[in-house]
Design a protein around this nucleic acid. Structure first.
Lengths: 216, 216
DNA sequence: TAGATTGTTAATCGATTAACAATC
DNA sequence: TAGATTGTTAATCGATTAACAATC
């Protein structure tokens, strides 16, 4: 039971690499590959083979020494580790451009997530449909969540409203929040929050370019 | 010259926190605050004051002992460190839902980035306008980049086309790429790439929720 | 058996936290 | 001066890399 992840603390860095492994493994599977070595997988990802072996080993022994990893088996295992087999129900709150884009993303479907509701306060948006899911009034949030479980709320409202939406989600019993508003939100620590502040990526790119310029 | 960032290597973690400092400082400024301590800034961000002082100190001495940081001055300094005063020109390649959303983002305007071009291959999209910027054929990329400098390319095409677009951008002389395609792209190391793979955030959230469930 | 590749332990590297002297 | 808060050094913690025994 040494490597059971209930006991060991897994680093955030490791967890953030698992989705990359999962994606690349599935891609390799489509190409018809059945067995892959950490070396080969590392090549495709730009990650060292040692790192990959270490990451995987913290959850169990998935490979065969002298052989490699059976892709089909490994995909299934990594998928389970990531909890994708739970087929989480997600709701988008704030159907602006970004919310709209996320709701359309096929990428999330293919990872097993299921869009079950969308909410907005704008009467022009309420009633619109994406993939057979209707945009509802934010007022209905709690009610809808009681009818059909919503595990994950995606916050794509302007930053000023983010905390209010988070409060509503928490009150309605949400388990996790994916927050795109560039603003810290406070929730009880039974609720998981992942912040996805897009200005960080662009600003850090700016940093590197500026520094390069200076050095030249 | 000890803390000059040409000499010291700055950690990625530090650089990723700078945009958060910048954003929160500006918010505080709007509230009318003129001086802020690392303690107070830490409170607002959920980051320890020691961490903040350390991060800032790697670029210079911006505070006053016994007093704190003058917000206006610090904003200006952090902005310069992040290179936001370069007012980088950006182009969006792939005007799907996500590209559309990013092109509309006011957040980037307020950080000094300027959208100067958009490209797509879909004839239905070519000719559409956002903020006075027209969607052009991807064919024109190099030509347009010769007319008006484009520093940063945002890749929001399906993963299958990402490498091809990256190659075109590199050939046209781009300096940095913000890649939303869930796929590793290869570029010469004179070009900076920031990968923004959104499935990582959602999948890692799934991981934490699944584990919580197991422990219960 | 010989070659290949994993899983794991040890060594290194890097980042955060703690402590405190400097000083406003 | 006394209180507050920075900037910096030292101590701790955590993550990556290297090395190699185990074994397919």
């Amino acid at each position: 039971m040494k490597n059971s992840y209930e006991k060991n603390v897994i680093s955030k860095a490791t967890i953030d690499r698992l989705p990359l492994y999962f994606r690349t493994l599935r891609l390799s599977q489509v190409e018809g590959i059945e067995i892959i070595s950490s070396e080969e997988l590392g090549q495709r990802l730009g990650i060292t083979p040692e790192q990959i072996r270490k990451d995987l080993a913290s959850f169990g022994q998935f490979g065969k020494k002298g052989v490699g990893y059976y892709i089909k088996e490994l995909i299934s295992n990594v998928g389970k580790i990531l909890g994708l087999d739970n087929h989480w129900h997600i709701a988008v709150i704030g159907v602006g451009h970004l919310g709209w884009a996320l709701a359309h993303s096929r990428n999330f479907d293919s990872l097993g997530f299921k869009l079950v509701a969308m909410f907005d306060t704008d009467p022009n948006k309420i009633g619109q449909c994406i993939k057979g899911v209707e945009v509802l009034s934010l007022e209905c949030l709690k009610e809808v969540m009681q009818e059909q479980t919503i595990h994950i709320g995606i916050i794509t409202v302007p930053e000023f409203y983010a905390q209010g939406v988070a409060d509503k989600l928490v009150a309605a019993g949400v388990r996790g929040i994916w927050n795109f508003a560039p603003m810290k939100i406070n929730v009880p620590d039974t609720v998981r929050v992942i912040n996805e502040d897009l200005s960080v990526g662009l600003s850090s790119l700016s940093f590197y370019l500026a520094r390069q310029t200076e050095i030249d």
